[in-house]
Design a protein around this nucleic acid. Structure first.
Lengths: 212, 212
DNA sequence: TCCTAAATCAACAACACTGTTGACTAGAAT
DNA sequence: ATTCTAGTCAACAGTGTTGTTGATTTAGGA
């Protein structure tokens, strides 16, 4: 690619929004083809910015990537710390990845790359939550929160990749969430919770019987 | 990197094993940093082969990548079609990814890239198996095999990433498999199977109670 | 034993990306 | 109004990658 094709319209000066545009383009690109494949050239092109401008905001390619991952971790932690009943929580968790596919993908790419397995803050938050859950009186004894956490994150992440490719409209996606949530809830309800103490969830599952 | 550093020792002529060495190096590299990041230069270097030789065996970079993925799909399907009781099957499935980390990683990378969501043959094999399972009389009615398949593949895949980073010796890994298998089995036993018809699995779970 | 097809390799051109530099200019400060 | 800081941009050198070509060597058949 030539350094600049043509269209020598100078960008209106606005550092903050320029920075945000660069970050957004980088995030999208990293999610699409992986952090490794993110290129300053393409980021700048997508953001409608000169490549040199990107280097003004982020000293190196790696610094830009790190900035993206930082913002990502913050957002993720925020999502994981929102409190609500188990059932809704699952729905929100799934919906989040369906509505923000790039977050699921970024998380996956990060797990593939990072030495310890997950954006550490977010992960600790999640495991801690599950530890509380496992020790409550309405769940079965002998649950391994760390392993359960792996299941409850890994399965939705993997599933969300499929949702991205196989759904076209919002209705599709809502149905996909319901379908997957139902299986997850069944497993949780009978595998880790004490169903007799969660009658509303039992009836929710019985009610949605016809779903397919 | 210079085209060739030095060490002008000519490789002993042996096309078959050369090809295999190239494939192995490519597979390792693709699994490590993703298919996109695999370069012929590095593959050739790792395989101890001249870059030109690699081009002799595989016309283009993409052809090499495709060859790797083809072999991967075959191996995966073979693994998925091996028959055995549910419990053992889970153990084998987990052990496979722990013993061959590059397969888990390749599968994930492939899902991230492929438009339809999975190495199609292997996936169909797996879902078909689960369909049979879901219709048997010793499992609960109303199971969604496709969704269950996403869970039963996704969770182990991501878990295995963690295992790779957090275990050092074979004993560690055996313990990790046992720990995760226990959670998966509990979920399955109570969430999709009829426990009263799977007494041996129930007692296996009760027995391993002390596991941590 | 000799010959030849094929395997191995080094060097080349074309290209993309990285990080740097210096020019240009818009907006803030004086 | 003038100055000056800093946002924006084009061009440069350096490096790594791709795919190609032609030289060199060796395994194995005639």
């Amino acid at each position: 690619m030539a350094d600049q094709i043509s269209a020598a319209v100078r960008r209106r000066r606005d550092p903050a929004s320029t920075r945000e545009a660069i970050l957004a383009a980088a995030r999208a690109l990293m999610a699409e083809r992986g952090p490794e494949a993110m290129t300053i050239s393409e980021v700048a092109h997508r953001a409608g910015v000169n490549r040199g401008t990107a280097y003004q905001h982020f000293r190196t390619r790696d610094e830009l990537a790190a900035a993206v991952m930082h913002g990502f971790g913050q957002r993720l932690t925020a999502m994981l710390t929102e409190q609500s009943p188990v059932g809704e929580r699952i729905d929100r968790f799934l919906a989040f990845f369906v509505e923000h596919p790039e977050f699921a993908r970024l998380w996956i790419y990060d797990m593939l790359a990072s030495p310890d397995g997950a954006p550490s803050d977010s992960w600790r938050v999640f495991v801690t939550t599950l530890e509380g859950f496992a020790q409550a009186s309405d769940t079965q004894p002998g649950i391994d929160p760390e392993m359960l956490a792996r299941i409850l994150v890994g399965a939705p992440l993997f599933w969300s990749l499929w949702v991205q490719k196989s759904t076209v409209d919002d209705d599709d996606r809502r149905r996909a969430v319901a379908r997957f949530a139902r299986e997850i809830k069944r497993l949780l309800l009978f595998g880790v919770m004490k169903p007799e103490q969660w009658t509303s969830m039992v009836s929710e599952l019985d009610g949605g019987e016809g779903a397919q």
